[in-house]
């Protein structure tokens, strides 16, 4: 739980108050040496601005893209990243870990 150090949900609330559409991504499961523990969060607004993190920067790009889609269709998604993924070559975790990330629209 790192939300206290960088106030992710506070920032998301500020974005909402400013009338922006937002999404939150949360690490819900990790295997091996994942960069951020379960519970770590990334907030994204409609312009792609970010607060917090769900990895060491390895998968944030892909997560933001999914977050944008979640903002449009309103549906939550469960993403998985790891070295065994074919996608991993593009947006993999250099550390060799595996993570599952839940992405949801806010509001």
């Amino acid at each position: 739980m790192t939300a206290m150090h960088e106030d992710i949900l506070g920032q998301v609330a500020n974005w909402r108050q400013a009338g922006k559409t937002c999404a939150v991504a949360t690490v819900v499961e990790t295997w091996g040496s994942a960069p951020r523990p379960a519970g770590s969060q990334l907030g994204v607004d409609e312009a792609g601005n970010m607060v917090g993190s769900v990895s060491g920067g390895c998968v944030e790009g892909a997560v933001v893209q999914e977050a944008m889609e979640a903002m449009q269709d309103g549906k939550p998604r469960l993403l998985e990243f790891g070295v065994s993924d074919s996608e991993a070559w593009a947006v993999g975790l250099a550390c060799g870990g595996k993570i599952r990330i839940f992405v949801e629209k806010v509001g």
Binding site: L9, A13, R16, K105, V106, G107
Partner: peptide
């Protein structure tokens, strides 16, 4: 996440 849950949290 509903706005009400974000606000309460």
């Amino acid at each position: 996440m509903d706005q009400s849950i974000l606000d309460q949290l």
